[in-house]
Design a protein around this nucleic acid. Sequence first.
DNA 1: CGTCGGGTTGATAACTTTCAAATTTCGTGG
DNA 2: CCACGAAATTTGAAAGTTATCAACCCGACG
Lengths: 243, 243
Amino acid sequence: MTVLQSPFARKLGAFVALSDEEMSALDKLHSRRKVFPAGRDMVLQGQIKQSAYILASGWVCSYKLLSDGSRQIVDFQIPGDFLGLRSVLFRTSDHNIEPVTRVEASEVLAKDLLDTFDKTPRLVTAVLWAASRDEAMVVEHLVDIGRRDAKERTAHFLLELGARLKLVGLGSTLGYACPLSQYLLADALGLSAVHVNRVLRELREAGLVTFQHGQVEIHDLDALVRLADFDKAYLDHDGPLLT
Amino acid sequence: MTVLQSPFARKLGAFVALSDEEMSALDKLHSRRKVFPAGRDMVLQGQIKQSAYILASGWVCSYKLLSDGSRQIVDFQIPGDFLGLRSVLFRTSDHNIEPVTRVEASEVLAKDLLDTFDKTPRLVTAVLWAASRDEAMVVEHLVDIGRRDAKERTAHFLLELGARLKLVGLGSTLGYACPLSQYLLADALGLSAVHVNRVLRELREAGLVTFQHGQVEIHDLDALVRLADFDKAYLDHDGPLLT
DNA sequence: CGTCGGGTTGATAACTTTCAAATTTCGTGG
DNA sequence: CCACGAAATTTGAAAGTTATCAACCCGACG
């Protein structure tokens, strides 16, 4: 067992107990380190032969554009997350990926990924698990937008982000650094930026949570959890299922 | 190559060219045929050790309940779809699955699934692909709810359902049989049933599409596609990527 | 010093829900 | 074949939520 695991390897290891060989196959995927400035898309909707990425630092968002110019952010990715799996598995990408901040990521070529799958098949199962966990998050996001009003929705979103960041050591129950603008938040929550602003004010004035100057501070976790009907079960999964 | 492939095998074959051995491993998963009456849940949120299912006939929906009693339907599954993968991969299910009609399905025990993965690893890749395709649908659903108004949303949903049914031979560009009530539609679209009713009337009166008596009839496909900003790219993927 | 991208606020308009009450459809037993 | 009750659909009116439009403020930055 390597001492210096990548966050990505650690995540997969949570589901499949990885051998040294599998671990080193994962390490090889990290060889093409790249840097992306904030704002310039890494992956484009409709484009073919895209790469995947393993995020080392920074935040990105994946989103879809509609023909009327509006956009929906599907998810944010944080360090340790795997991006663009669908861009590789399908011939053409069905979404865009944009760095929210400056980003460091390892590019994973489609061929390298498929080769790795071929040589170390248990890694496929691990990736399947990781993909399912991502899907669970998208599903929760769907529920959020479909059945919660703006206040509950925003609260839920901030809690989820906090829980995810905590898992990778980037936040605590008290708060976390959050580089998102209210516009990004709006596009993720399916609201207008103006309304997000009002909702954040309400949450702040109610003493629940503040989001200012790139910092989320959770002042009343219990009340927030209650308001948002937040259940983090879909995020944690203890101990490897496959040994 | 077997002549009588299951719809599920055919679907996986669209991504990975399957050997006879892999094909027969898939067939073995179909041995526990079961029947479920409409309305009684097959899988329950929070329950552990659930099975997965391969749907042979009938429709089911997967949904989440909120503490205030409202629910959000995440997706409908139609014959050939694989259900409850996440219930197996995670220890406990994060969603409910309810048959919309009488349903015939093959139960797939967690152990059998993982054994199959172990013995025929390429099937894992195929399942990963299928899961990614499902995720793409959930993502599109998310965009639908987040950024389209009720009319566009409903139109998009009816088109997507049609496209999916056409893929398995259960519908055409002209229409399809649809066993969903307006309540189910509402829970899927994040609307109230009353509003769904009004929107359906508008679509009908505009001469675009009718949904009555369990039958969806598409009267003006072009206009509907334009209204909904529908792009079925996320649904078709021609020819196996892995050979 | 001027511009520009956030953030903030108010007023108004648009969309959707909720509540309440018909009306229709459908399965079942007589 | 008909009657009946339950479930689904339909419609209107009123209330609530969120978007849009239009300013204004502020700090960063060239």
